[in-house]
Design a protein around this nucleic acid. Structure first.
Lengths: 304, 304
DNA sequence: GCGATCCGTTAGTGATTCTTACAAATAATC
DNA sequence: GATTATTTGTAAGAATCACTAACGGATCGC
């Protein structure tokens, strides 16, 4: 029996009619696929693909062979999935900040639940950005900065670009055209990020009022709610208001330079990925994060 | 999808109800199997085997899972085999000495042919023990000693124990009871191994006649034929006369100490094993060789 | 024509897998 | 019941395997 790894590479390459595409699917370089195919061709002593320049196509014989390979792998894959699901609900605990939970994680959870009904996700929140004192062990910790812990791995999974948002009706009044116009509005502040407004004003060439005029909140999500209600302007991570912007509830009033942070990160034990449930949830978080890139440079023009 | 390697280990272990046996089947240590199973159990987050001391048995769930795994692998294995066979006959060339070809290799070839009809084996013989001057490239070279060549691998695959044999009827006459009795017979000699008789006599505590009385042959197989015809006694590798001894045509007349050589070896290119045909023939040779161990110490008593 | 894309090869690196120990537990044997 | 021989699981190191990165050659689209 030939190498199963080589057979998988062969199958993927044949299905895509492309070595590179197969590499993308299996998360390896095109070179890795190419080598595995070479090994397989060496094993059988004859070519598996017809190569005409860039394009590759499986031999007539190989095509028939592929059918069986696919059926075999499919059977194994389906059985594995069924076995995994039959094992009862598995619990994954995620700790993050209240704001991130409310405005990013929880809205996306239904999507995960429907894709993986056997996995139960428990979200817990801690107000602190510090992870040192977290009592319980969590499977995944999400924070706004990179973290470090022995035997753990930290992945950046979401851009942290803080932009100014206000309620839709404030924009429609036409009073906000340039950054300086903000000075006429209450500036919603957060206790945990006192430097947000000063840095933002500096970045956009406006001298920052001192003291800032406006209420102080403990959490992002509270200030966002205040902004939605027309209480003033807030500087918040784009990722946490994406849906409100898209829905037209909030608006980014003008083109501006944004505060770019180190990004949102997830922290988990290194061996968490060797577990199917662990890999599933981490892959999902990474995919969700990468799938929603904020526009670089300037925020989108608010919908008309 | 979990690691295919781990699934194979799991399947084999379950089939044998034994980690060690699975290791033997897959040609790895029991530890390797044990670790792969651990990985799989970690992946699924629950045990696959019930362990009661030494004995292991798959979980009820796992047993159902196994069915599908087996079907999947079987499908792939069968398709691979079919694909390999559909590729037309492949040729393997083997070079060895005339004696080895006649008395060991050729008698066994029909067994190989019926197991692998798509592979054509071509046997060529060279009288010399030297492999340096062999002109053509051969896939496999078989000689009585270890060989060395760049990018090649040499495996010992057959014991080389030379013992004394005579025609059956000479034994029945009762004239041969101890080594010393040989002195009354013609001693069949070989040009390539002039030291055989002197060493054998020395090993068995008999002073060797000088010069030896008896005809000189170029090849083992000629001297064996002479022995069969009652012309005298020969010292020949046990492996080359095994079937004649078993059939009662030749006989090992008495218990004696035998000449133990370094063994018969096969030489082939290192990458020959990456080819299916290559691996098939090498595996077959190794299995045939290991399957026919000569009795250690003393030769068998001739059949009555 | 020219840039972009794709495949194949090589050398070097990195990761997985295996082997070789050892420890614990059990089954077999005396 | 003590002893020996098996068998499984774990740990650490070694060996193998697979992958990446970089380059060259070839083709395709513009």
């Amino acid at each position: 029996m030939p190498s199963l790894k080589a057979l998988r590479a062969f199958e993927a390459a044949a299905r895509h009619s492309s070595v590179s595409a197969a590499g993308r699917e299996l998360n390896v370089s095109h070179s890795a696929i190419s080598q595995q195919i070479s090994i397989l061709e060496g094993y059988f002593g004859r070519p598996l693909f017809l190569r005409r320049g860039k394009r590759i196509a499986p031999t007539a014989e190989a095509a028939a062979f592929l059918e069986d390979i696919r059926l075999g792998f499919d059977r194994i894959a389906m059985a594995s999935e069924q076995f995994a699901r039959s094992g009862g609900a598995r619990v994954v605990t995620i700790n993050t900040t209240p704001s991130f939970a409310m405005r990013w994680l929880i809205p996306r959870l239904p999507g995960f639940q429907s894709a993986h009904p056997e996995i139960e996700v428990r979200v817990s929140t801690s107000s602190t950005d510090q992870i040192a004192g977290l009592g319980e062990p969590y499977d995944i910790i999400i924070r706004r900065d990179a973290m470090n812990r022995a035997d753990h791995r930290c992945d950046r999974f979401l851009d942290d670009v803080a932009t100014v948002v206000v309620a839709r009706n404030l924009v429609e009044k036409g009073a906000l055209k340039v950054p300086k116009d903000l000075l006429g509005l209450p500036l919603l502040q957060m206790r945990s990020r006192p430097e947000a407004w000063p840095r933002w004003f500096e970045l956009n060439g406006v001298s920052c009022p001192d003291p800032l005029a406006g209420p102080l909140f403990e959490h992002f999500f509270l200030s966002v709610q205040a902004a939605i209600n027309g209480l003033g302007a807030a500087v918040v991570p784009y990722a946490l208001v994406e849906s409100d912007l898209a829905a037209g509830i909030l608006a980014a009033p003008f083109s501006s330079r944004d505060l770019v942070g180190p990004g949102f990160h997830i922290l988990y034990r290194t061996d968490f990925l060797t577990n199917r449930v662990g890999r599933t949830i981490v892959d999902w978080l990474l995919a969700e994060g990468r799938g929603h890139k904020p526009p670089s440079g300037s925020p989108p023009v608010p919908p008309a």
